[in-house]
Design a protein around this nucleic acid. Sequence first.
DNA 1: TAGTGTCGGTTCATTCATTGAACCGATGAA
DNA 2: TTCATCGGTTCAATGAATGAACCGACACTA
Lengths: 172, 172
Amino acid sequence: MALGKNYEGQQCALARALELVGERWTLLVMRDALYGVRRYGDFLAHLDIPRAVLSQRLHALVEAGLLTRHRYQEAPPRDEYVLTEAGRALWTPVYTLSQWGERYAADGEPMRLFFHLPCDAPLDMNGACTACGRHTEPQEVEVRPGPGVRFVREDAVSVAMRRPHRLLDPLP
Amino acid sequence: MALGKNYEGQQCALARALELVGERWTLLVMRDALYGVRRYGDFLAHLDIPRAVLSQRLHALVEAGLLTRHRYQEAPPRDEYVLTEAGRALWTPVYTLSQWGERYAADGEPMRLFFHLPCDAPLDMNGACTACGRHTEPQEVEVRPGPGVRFVREDAVSVAMRRPHRLLDPLP
DNA sequence: TAGTGTCGGTTCATTCATTGAACCGATGAA
DNA sequence: TTCATCGGTTCAATGAATGAACCGACACTA
C-alpha cells in the first residue's frame, strides 16, 4: 500500500482496521501467526515475502498491539512474535475472508478444512461450529489439509501443516 | 499495493481473496457498495480517493466479478456499479473486520449500529442477529448512526447516512 | 448559438512503497 | 580459524498512489 497507509477522512471502523492490517502482506502475516508461526525465519520462508517488508510489518504489528515480541533464548538473542488478544480476535475476520476466497476466488476443492475440536465438527462459512452452533476461538479450532491442497511447498511451516494442527500451537 | 498484487506462492484461499480485494482502497469501495453507493461521483466524494485509483479499482472489481456495470441512463450515457452475488457475499468479511476495528482500532463509542430488520435486533460481533441467532444477508440489515459518530462530512453519501438506511438500497 | 456546468473519466509529473539482492553482526559448530 | 545460521539493515530499481490538470459528451441557459 502506498502513500499514506491511513484513511483519515473516513469516519469508519473499517478504515481504522485497514490502517492496522490493510497493507500488503499484513493479513497473511496475521494468518500465519494464527496458525502458530512465531519466528522471523518461518514467516520468511512460508510467505516468500521480502525481508525488509517482513521486518517492517512485524514491527508495525507489535507497535499496533497485535503482536508482542518475546525473547525465548538469550544466546544468541532470539525473539518470537506472539499474538495478543487483539491479534487473536482477528481470527473471525481472517476466517470469513478466507472462506469468501475459497468460495468466490479460488477454484477447485477447499485447501484447508477447519474443525471445532470440542465437537469434532466442521465450521460453517461464518466461523460457527456446525454441531454446537457457537462461534469459535482460535485455540478450539484445528486446521486439516483439504481435498484441494497440493503438497508442493517444502518450507518447514508448509510441511508441518500437512497434518492436522491446532491453531495458535507453535509451528513448526 | 505495489509490485505484484498477487501472492502466487501462497496456496491459500486468503491469498486468493486478497488478490481481489486486498489492494489499498478496494475494501472501502466494497463497503460503500454494500451501503448502496453506485455512482462514480458518489464513491469519489465519499471516499476522498484519487480519481485514477477509483477508476482502476472499479474496473478491476467488474473484471473480478464483484461488481457489474449497468447503464441506467442513455443521454448522457451513465453507468452505475452494482454488486454481484460474490460482491454481496463480502458482507460478512467486511462486517467482521469492521467490528474488529470498532473494538480494537477505534476509540470511543461505535460509529454505526447494525440491526436485523425482521427482528429489529442488533447484530453481534460475528454478524448474527442477537434475537433470532441467524446470520444475516445484507438486504436484511439496517445501518443506523451510532453514539460515536460525528456529522462532519457533507458529501451526499455521508448526509444520507445520517438517518437509518437499509444495506444495498441505492444511496444517496 | 455561444457560454457554462456536470459527469465520468484520462494523463501526467511527483512522491512513496515494494522488491530482491547484497551486506552485516552476533553467535555456535567443526 | 573458518564456515554456517539467524535476524535483520541497506540500497538501487521498479512500479503504484497521489492530486492537479485536462478532456469529451451532453444539458441547460441566456
